[in-house]
Simulated assay, not measured.
Amino acid sequence: MAKLLYITVNPKNDSKLSKGMQIGEVFLEEFKKHRADVEIEHMHLYDMDIPEIDMDLLYARAKLSFMGKTFDELSEAEQTKYLSMHALADRFIAADYYVFVTPLWNLGAPAILKAFLDNLFLVNKTFTNTHEGPKGLLTNRKALHIQTRGGIYSTGPMVDFEFGDRFLRKALGFLGMELLDTVVAEGMDHFPKQIPEIMEKAKEQAIEAAREMAKESVTV
């Protein structure tokens, strides 16, 4: 059975409080209409114990990749964190469709998203190195980013300062995924009276994105 991994990145794990999750739920409702055959798994990063690259993980990866050590020669802490990293990556790899819902904070995404993505860059598991350069192994997968922004970053002086969507798209593209156009709701802090119109437009975009993602079955 195909799976869609719905990844929310906001301390507000409640659609009543999170505008991004309100848009995300509209996407899911429309997607289900067209692809009832796809299982949907919700992964809320703030409810998870995400391995961070600390001294143990740095040394575990180095020892196994080029220092000639075996897994049994790692310390207990190194083994535990290394296995946790790969378990999270395996859970991610098992999906076929991906939807990320994030806010833009201080020019980028919440730091927990970077910590999460750090677990996915595993040589010969999610990408490999070739003579032509790195090649993503997570092909035939579709991904969408739904992002909320308080300011305006699509036009004007802040265009070059948006690093949340830009980074996520580059990271997922590096891993080999097919990326749909990002659904953006922006300007809500600058134009609070226009929030209903901004949200309605974003929800319409989410519906179109759901239809687009549902068009073709992916074959992982």
Score class of each variant (00 low, 15 high):
4 L>V: 09
19 K>R: 15
20 G>C: 12
21 M>T: 14
21 M>E: 15
23 I>C: 10
23 I>S: 04
23 I>A: 06
24 G>W: 04
26 V>W: 00
27 F>Q: 02
27 F>S: 03
30 E>Q: 13
38 V>Y: 02
38 V>N: 01
39 E>T: 15
41 E>C: 03
44 H>E: 11
45 L>T: 10
47 D>G: 07
50 I>R: 08
51 P>R: 08
51 P>V: 13
53 I>K: 11
53 I>Q: 04
56 D>E: 15
57 L>N: 14
58 L>N: 11
65 S>E: 13
69 K>Q: 12
72 D>W: 00
73 E>P: 06
74 L>R: 05
76 E>D: 14
76 E>G: 01
77 A>Q: 13
78 E>S: 09
79 Q>V: 01
80 T>A: 15
83 L>M: 14
83 L>C: 02
90 D>W: 02
96 D>L: 10
99 V>D: 11
101 V>K: 00
111 A>Y: 13
114 K>H: 09
116 F>A: 02
117 L>N: 10
118 D>K: 02
123 V>Q: 08
127 F>A: 06
128 T>L: 12
129 N>P: 00
130 T>P: 10
133 G>S: 11
136 G>L: 04
138 L>H: 05
140 N>Y: 05
141 R>H: 07
143 A>R: 10
145 H>T: 14
145 H>F: 12
146 I>K: 02
146 I>S: 05
148 T>G: 01
150 G>E: 07
151 G>F: 05
155 T>V: 14
155 T>M: 09
159 V>M: 13
161 F>E: 11
163 F>S: 04
165 D>N: 14
165 D>V: 12
165 D>K: 13
170 K>Y: 15
174 F>T: 08
178 E>V: 12
180 L>M: 09
184 V>H: 02
184 V>W: 01
186 E>D: 09
191 F>M: 11
192 P>V: 08
193 K>V: 12
194 Q>S: 13
197 E>H: 02
198 I>D: 03
198 I>M: 02
201 K>G: 00
202 A>T: 08
202 A>P: 00
205 Q>L: 10
207 I>L: 03
209 A>T: 03
209 A>C: 05
211 R>L: 05
214 A>H: 05
214 A>N: 03
215 K>R: 15
218 V>D: 00
